[in-house]
Design a protein around this nucleic acid. Structure first.
Lengths: 177, 177, 177, 177
DNA sequence: GATGAATGAGTGTTCATTCAT
DNA sequence: AATGAATGAACACTCATTCAT
């Protein structure tokens, strides 16, 4: 792929994130094109289907989140890394519908999503080893709570304060009884 | 309003709940009309806008949930009533897009939503008085968690098992430490 | 169906015949709407698919042709009725792409087409009984020649003279040797 | 023109014949480029317009048919050569949309078509001299019937059998009465 | 000359909303 | 009040054609 095509692809993905975040997945592809400063045909050349565009954007996001989780797993305090990551994701979600939809299963993101799951799994294991999280908690519930609170933060427009209080309950629930 | 108009209004609302629950808010108004056994014009005479129809349906739902909460407040065990209600809502949400959307703020439901909040507030107070829920938990967080887990149950398609495990964490978080 | 809807349906079919005749089946549905003096949605309300519109137009045509054939079978001279019908169809085809496409099998017209075949079959039988057409000629060939010459008259823009000379060869081929 | 450009031109024409024969003239130019192993820009450099490409392909075909006619005129039995050629063209047409469209006048093919006409004219003259075809038949009718039956064979999807029976009627019509 | 990315007008189709019956 | 036909803006997507690399 040519350099300029690469650049356009990036512009389109960025625009898609902006647009779909603002208006949800029902936003028009045309709007994405406009925001990216390209013609509609260019969007469809890069992503033959609106769904492809959504999926590509989600993959990008999943990669980003997986990266964050991995970094925290490598560097952070095992006792708090999971919670830090959790907070970060939910905070981002507050402004981004896409994060939310990513965490659901509406669009199959495949490997990227798996990578993210794995990274979060590591965080969970460390937290459990260090006694910060109960042994009987499984990754599925953590993902579920992450999804749920991200959805909530976005749709319900939680304030920073409410978000903190809500997460503190979740974290208490995860901690040793 | 004539008696038959009143009856049509009810039929339309019922149909709307059916349709939007099955197919989400993107379902067509035409489909609602068909399901209600009414012409499309009649739907728009009662609800000048699709949004008005959605809002009315949400209000109905909010009323129903408020009723459930009040019943539980009047009759149930104070220690478990909140959790019972919580579980019931999330379980319903798993099969109903509308419940989920109701809990968000996309559509302003106003007074009905307030009634529901109040009823849930009562449940919370009772639970706190009985020591089942920590004193520092506020209604906002409870609503937030209710919203979040309902969203999650719907979008992520949680299994019954996962739903139970996820809620058990939330309930643990709400309980005394 | 209401009277005005009936009228619109007719206007649309007429416009479709005009438009598709002028420009072939690739002409846009929008153009049909414009020509009919209705909005595009109206066309799609009556004919949910472009193909449905084409098929309906074809059916109308098949009905018309079947009617002509039946009239000739009832009233005409058995020796010449088939040839008269044949000439009539090809003459119409000269200005109408649709007649041509109807005779092909691109779009399944079903019963209407069958009715037309039957009517032409009657004409053929009469012609053979009267000795004007060889006994070993089958309906399939007659239909094939009708199709072929109609196509030709249209696409090649035959003059009246050329059409007459071409048909005279076909008729000679059909007659007794 | 460079040697490789020459080669590309040939590859494109060959691909065009393949593609348009399979899918009709609505096939996309992109598909032709792909089949030719060439970028889309190259196709448009050689043939500035899709129509130009179609026309060039038709010319090629006309040349080929003219060649066949000339060969038959030089070598074949004058009594049957015209019929043999006729059968060959119609048989080819059955599998080739392009042959059909060539014989029409949708696209002006000019000199090449003239060459083909001339060659067929020779076949006709020989057939008439040998008494196999009536004296009063003109080339125009023969071309018209060739066009018509080719169209028919293609669009109506005639079986081999039907094609033979249909042509036998045409040939009987051309023969002495 | 070749490449293939970009363009943008155009297509079939849907659907909230209006309005004549 | 109810009906359901008509409206027309909007959408996802295609493709001939242009143009930067």
């Amino acid at each position: 792929m040519r350099a300029d095509a690469q650049r356009n692809r990036a512009k389109i993905l960025a625009a898609a994130e902006e647009v779909f975040v603002e208006s949800g997945a029902d936003a028009s592809t045309e709007e994405v094109a406009k925001r990216a400063g390209v013609a509609i045909g260019t969007v469809f050349r890069h992503f033959p289907t609106k769904n492809d565009l959504l999926a590509a954007m989600m993959k990008q996001l999943a990669d980003r989140l997986a990266g964050e989780a991995e970094t925290l797993a490598a560097q952070g305090d095992p006792r708090t890394a999971l919670f830090t990551f959790f907070e970060g994701v939910v905070e981002q979600a507050a402004g981004k519908k896409t994060v939310v939809e990513l965490l659901g299963v509406d669009i199959q993101v495949g490997r990227q999503l798996q990578a993210m799951r794995d990274a979060i799994g590591t965080l969970l294991m460390r937290a459990q080893e260090s006694g910060a999280v109960r042994e009987d908690v499984q990754l599925d519930e953590v993902m579920a709570l992450l999804t749920a609170t991200s959805h909530g933060a976005l749709h319900a427009g939680w304030s920073d304060d409410l978000r903190a209080r809500t997460l503190s309950i979740v974290f208490a629930g995860l901690g040793p009884s």
